[in-house]
Structure formats: C-alpha cells, structure tokens
Design a protein around this nucleic acid. Structure first.
Length: 344
DNA sequence: GAAATTTGACCAGT
DNA sequence: ACTGGTCAAATTTC
C-alpha cells in the first residue's frame, strides 16, 4: 500500500518524507541504544522523549503521505499562523460574522458561533467495551442527542485547548447496550505537552490491545459507507479498562461514564438501533489497509503520545516491524505506569 | 473560589 | 429545514 501514496505526492513532499523517515530511523536507533544502556528510572523519561520524537515523525509522515499537509497547517493556532478570528473558540471582537447580526442578537452572537466547523478533518475511531483512558485530559463541552441513536453523544475537547492551544477533540457515544460498546471518535492532533499523560497514553493502548479490549479505526471522516466496517469491530470484554476514562479529569469522568453515556435516550426515536451508528463510520480503501495492520501498529499511532494523535498505521508498522518494537519496552515500563494511574 | 459539567442556543453543512 | 458540532451561562462538584 505504500506505493500508492508515493505516486500522488509531489517531489518536494517526497523529499520531506524521506528526510522524516531518516530521522525516524535515527530516533529508532537511539531508542535501542538507550534501551541497552539506561536504567529503569532514567529510561522512563528518556523513553518518553524518544516516544515524542517518534510520534512526531509518525504524525508528520502520516499527514504528508495523505496529502493533508494543508489541513494540518490549518490546525495550527492562530497566533502562529492562521488568521481565523477565533481559532480557540473564544470570540474576538471583530469577527466577521457579526456582520449579519442584528442588534438584538449582537450580544449573543458576539459570544457564540465563532467557530469553524470541522470539515474533512483528520479523525479516527476507537471502539471498546469500556470507556478507555487515552491518556489525555479531556473537558466535556457538549452533549447531543443524535438522530436514530439510542444514546446521546458527548463532546470533549482537550483540557489544554486554551492554555496550549491544543485542537484535539473527541466524541464518545455508547452504541450498544449488551455488551456495552462505546465508540470514541477523535478529531485533530494533540499539540499540548501533557507529557505525564503522554506516557500513559502510549502504554495503555498497547496493553489494551493485547488484551483485546478495544478496536481502533483510522479514517478520514466521511460517513458514507456502511456495513462491513463494524463487522471487523467486534469488541470484547476487558477489565483493565476500568480505571479508564479517568483522563477526563479524574472523577468527573466517572460521572460521565455512569450517568451520561450509559443513559439511554428515552424518547420515541430510540427504535431501531443499537447497531446503526456503527455504520456511520467507514473506512476508505486506504484505511482498510490500515485495518489489516491494526493488530500491531495502529494502536500506537492512533493513541499516540501526548502530542500526535495522528492515527495512520503505516509508519508505525514500519517502526514496529523494523526493530525491537515498543511493545517489549512498554511492557517494561508498565508497572510504573500503573502505579501512577491507579490513584483510585 | 476554581474547575468541571450541564444544557439550551447558535451556527454551519447538507 | 434538519442535524450535528460548538459555545457559554448556569449549575454542580471539589
């Protein structure tokens, strides 16, 4: 599948990719060296750094290979590159849309509506039988009843949206009652530096994955297709995930888990569908390829450390396939992590 | 009191 | 017009 993306890219981008691949290889070697020479404690922080580096490479490569560079750039906060009047969701004084505001609504409009709706944004999906901790701190900003969905959808943004201009968001929706099945759809890349959580973030999914509790889907949005995807997605039980979802600011997430996402919607349109929402998401042919490699790669890339939640597996496949992959390393690190995570 | 969640309203895409 | 995504005041929690 790699040949396909090669063909479509301009030479300059190809060159950039080559450079990134080279850097990626170097980081990989560094990791191996560190793995041999460093003690446990030293390794953890250094390992995190290497993870950061490699995730950064992965993310960038994914973006470039998919021809999404432009979009990626557009996600960078306004103060660094874009002129969007209110990129961070806060209203700036002179945002253009007020032009069609009436005076009566001006006050409200002054506060609201200044946001760009996500279109074709980079997104991927994770399905699990429990609400999984993806290692990031999330803040809930909305909940919505979705047509033909039995349960409401919850909307989360990165806690560091404002202090670090992190653009990542996710949506969580329970899609099935028995067995419980939650679908988490991630949008955007984390640009925050939440390093502590980052290491957890990297670790958990590996573990989860090996214990087979969740499925990560990578896709480019578009909800057209159906069928089939979900057939790949049978999710299973896992007990490990329960400490989970704590990333939504510890306790509050429990609340969400218990009364928010679990709560079925009790109105008339609940009729048909526990499964239907699954069909809202589909994989592009390319992503089907990713799917086929999920078993080892995409979990890492998808959950990918603090700052790069790009999900595309090809790079990670390469990493993991090409060297003593992270898994063993991560297993070593895990005890530390658990001590940290399971505060309650 | 600060931070997080809830919830109704606003807005954009279709 | 409808629906989903986001905003922000009000409320709740710590």
């Amino acid at each position: 599948m790699e040949s396909s993306w090669h063909e479509n890219l301009p030479a300059t981008r190809m060159k950039a990719i080559d450079e990134l691949v080279r850097g990626q290889e170097i980081a990989k070697r560094l990791k191996l060296v560190m793995n041999r020479s460093t003690g446990a404690d030293g390794y953890l922080s250094a390992g995190d750094l290497v993870m950061e580096i490699m995730n950064s490479f992965n993310s960038t490569l994914s973006i470039l290979k998919r021809g999404e560079f432009d979009e990626f750039v557009s996600q960078i906060p306004a103060n660094t590159q874009m002129g969007s009047p209110c990129w961070d969701g806060r209203k700036s004084e002179d945002s253009g849309e007020s032009g069609r505001s009436t005076t009566a609504t001006l006050k409200v409009k002054d506060r609201r509506g200044c946001y760009k709706r996500r279109k074709n944004s980079h997104s991927w999906m994770n399905e699990a039988s429990a609400l999984t901790d993806d290692g990031h701190a999330w803040r809930k900003y909305g909940q919505k009843l979705i047509l033909n969905a039995k349960y409401p959808r919850s909307y989360f943004r990165c806690t560091h949206k404002f202090d670090q201009h992190c653009q990542a968001t996710k949506q969580v929706q329970r899609v099935q009652e028995e067995p419980p099945l939650y679908r988490t759809t991630y949008h955007g890349h984390h640009t925050c530096k939440n390093l502590l959580k980052a290491s957890h973030f990297v670790l958990d999914p590996i573990d989860q994955h090996h214990k087979d509790s969740s499925i990560l889907l990578s896709f480019n949005n578009n909800k057209n297709n159906d069928e089939n995807n979900t057939n790949h997605l049978t999710s299973k039980q896992d007990n490990l995930l329960f400490p989970s979802f704590q990333s939504i600011k510890q306790e509050p997430c429990k609340k969400e888990e218990s009364n928010l996402i679990d709560m079925p919607i009790s109105h008339d349109q609940t009729t048909h569908n526990n499964q239907a929402p699954s069909s809202d998401y589909l994989l592009s042919p390319e992503d089907h390829d990713h799917m086929s490699t999920f078993d080892h790669g995409d979990v890492i890339s998808g959950v990918n450390s603090s700052c790069t939640t790009s999900s595309h597996s090809l790079d990670v496949d390469r990493i993991i396939g090409g060297s003593a992959d992270f898994s063993s390393t991560l297993v070593e690190m895990k005890p530390n992590r658990q001590a940290t995570v399971q505060k309650h």
